[in-house]
Design a protein around this nucleic acid. Structure first.
Length: 591
DNA sequence: CTAGGGTTAG
């Protein structure tokens, strides 16, 4: 949920001299509470409310609640709410509104139970908010109870409540109940129609959704957007595009929905073409293109686009930084990563779970374990993803003990490890050769947590055994795995053979590997280097000839560095760089 | 009512 809070404008000065009457203070408070406020401002305003005996004034107090709720300070609002002896129905609604708008449906439902327990009157507004929360949580019992009350109290002519009911029933998977409500409404508005259509889409009843769409007397842009989105979900991009081209008007959402469709299937060119063509872009548009580039390994372009965004009129948000940070990580662009870290602290971007995870991952990939740990320690909320990432970063840097420690913290905090957690732990073991620990975690994962080992886990174990010289055991494990041997496992064993100079097994594995993926140059290179190391030059030469005959090219190695806020990529054997000679001279000097 | 985000074996 995006922050509704700041920019908070400063409070207008108000003096409490003899001139300032109660009325004027009241007016001042009321205006001040119309805009979002920082926690400090709220506190001082609340103090004034109490000091001036305005706590009896329902209007001012209600406005204070509403203001706190909508300034992302629902906790503060709740404290004020709880200090009121008998809150008026309006206060409940203000609180409910806050919970609903800050994405806390669970709290909204809890407050609603309190409202029912205290027999406080509800109105159509209460019902609409509670239904929305129930729909988010899929709480059909609450939804049905509210439906009963709505009928009993005669709110069944209220379009907003009816629409909320349709949404709730569809979110809980009962589209037929929703349809019953829908059919009884006489004067349906566009939102009501749209809710029915999107409800059918949510229940994966695409044919019905289309029927309702075709029946609509008048369609809004959203109606079309829902349909475009529906076809995207069915992976029917042709129909999505047909509808997009057909629709009479397109808004940002329409363009973004279409861009998102192309992004999902990795068509960066179409994504970029639409992005450049759209008349008005918002933050979602930028995020879509950036993340599309990143997901397709086009990190340099992603960073370039991020730079362009900074000089545009759109401000980056949480999603933007989560999208660009992996690009920094992949390119090892620590400077830029650090700059983004600072930028987040300076701006209104919240360090949520996603942002923190992306930061830890980026710092880890860029080699700064210290900064990764700093972000980890400062994270207020920690979930499985965040722990997994931290464990993985420590494993990557050979800090096995620290990784184990984080794992223990995780268990202590009651956060459930998943299969990825164990990939990290096993990786930590294999990097420092802790065979016993590795076996312990492998056992723990299956026996204590009931997780089914995947190729990734076997990969770590093969690596762990192989590196420590248990080549035979590793080979046996691959043979007896419950799944097909992934080429990566064999490649891992092959490099272990090279490490421990076991040419006989290496040959066996390499042949199997070459059979499995004949087009991969790496396998030939590895085997040929094993032959060379063992002094079997003719076999090595034979292999290279074989590669040539099959037309297998060695892929150039690639590395990148940050230069003046840009990222330069280098390919092995690339002599086309304009400053090639200077670079070589510099390299000579360095060595 | 509609669009965007994080961890995974060499």
């Amino acid at each position: 949920m995006a922050s509704l809070a700041p920019p908070c404008i400063p409070l207008q000065t108000h003096t409490f001299d003899s001139d300032s009457t109660q009325k004027r203070t009241e007016e001042w408070l009321f205006t001040s509470l119309k805009s979002p406020r920082t926690p400090t401002q709220l506190k001082s305003l609340h103090a004034h409310v109490i000091k001036t005996n305005l706590a009896q004034n329902d209007l001012v107090l209600g406005q204070l609640l509403l203001c706190s709720s909508l300034s992302d300070s629902t906790n503060y609002a709740r404290r004020v709410f709880d200090s009121i002896p008998q809150p008026k129905p309006f206060f409940y609604n203000a609180m409910l509104k806050g919970y609903s708008q800050t994405g806390q449906p669970r709290e909204a439902i809890r407050l609603y139970s309190l409202l029912r327990a205290n027999s406080v009157a509800s109105d159509s507004y209460t019902f609409a908010v509670v239904l929305r929360s129930a729909s988010l949580l899929g709480l059909i019992p609450v939804g049905e109870e509210v439906h009963g009350l709505v009928l009993k109290m005669g709110f069944d002519c209220n379009l907003i409540v009816q629409t909320a009911l349709i949404d709730m029933y569809c979110a809980c998977g009962f589209s037929s109940y929703a349809r019953l409500v829908f059919d009884r409404i006489i004067n349906k508005d566009v939102i009501c129609w749209n809710t029915m259509i999107s409800g059918y889409v949510k229940c994966a009843e695409f044919g019905r959704a289309r029927e309702v769409f075709d029946e609509m007397p008048t369609r809004s842009v959203s109606s079309w957007n829902i349909m475009v989105d529906m076809y995207c979900e069915c992976r029917d991009i042709e129909n999505a595009r047909r509808l997009f081209d057909e629709m009479p008007d397109r808004d940002v959402v329409s363009w973004n929905a279409m861009i998102s469709a192309y992004a999902k299937i990795g068509q960066c060119e179409d994504v970029r073409w639409l992005f450049d063509k759209m008349p008005k872009k918002n933050v979602v548009s930028w995020n879509l293109v950036i993340s599309c580039y990143v997901h397709n390994g086009r990190f340099v372009e992603a960073l370039e686009l991020f730079r362009t965004m900074q000089v545009s009129d759109v401000m980056p948000n949480e999603v933007t930084v989560v999208a660009v940070l992996p690009a920094c990580g992949h390119l090892g662009a620590l400077d830029l990563g650090q700059w983004i870290h600072g930028y987040i602290s300076r701006s209104q971007i919240k360090m949520d779970l996603y942002v923190n995870t992306a930061l830890i991952n980026m710092f880890g990939k860029c080699g700064s374990v210290e900064e990764a740990l700093m972000v980890f320690d400062s994270a207020i909320e920690k979930d499985t993803f965040l722990y997994n990432t931290m464990i993985d970063v420590l494993a990557m840097h050979g800090k096995a003990e620290a990784a184990f420690g984080i794992f223990e913290n995780m268990r202590g905090a009651g956060i459930k490890p998943n299969d990825v957690t164990f990939v990290g732990l096993l990786k930590a073991c294999s990097h420092v050769g802790l065979v016993n620990n590795g076996m312990k975690y492998f056992k723990m994962m299956t026996e204590e947590y009931g997780l089914i080992p995947k190729v990734e886990h076997f990969g770590c174990i093969v690596d762990l055994l192989g590196r420590s010289g248990y080549l035979k055991e590793a080979h046996e494990l691959i043979k007896h795995m419950p799944m097909e041997p992934h080429p990566i496992l064999l490649a891992s064993l092959l490099s272990a053979c090279r490490l421990h100079k076991n040419v006989r097994l290496a040959e066996e594995v390499a042949l199997q590997l070459v059979e499995l993926e004949p087009e991969n140059c790496g396998n030939y290179v590895l085997l040929s280097s094993i032959y060379s190391k063992a002094g079997r030059w003719d076999e090595a030469a034979k292999l290279r000839r074989m590669m040539k005959d099959k037309g297998i090219m060695k892929k150039p190695g690639c590395s990148s560095i940050e230069v003046n806020n840009g990222v330069q990529e280098f390919f092995a054997g690339d002599r086309d760089h304009p400053q090639f000679n200077e670079i070589m001279e510099m390299l000579d000097q360095i060595s």
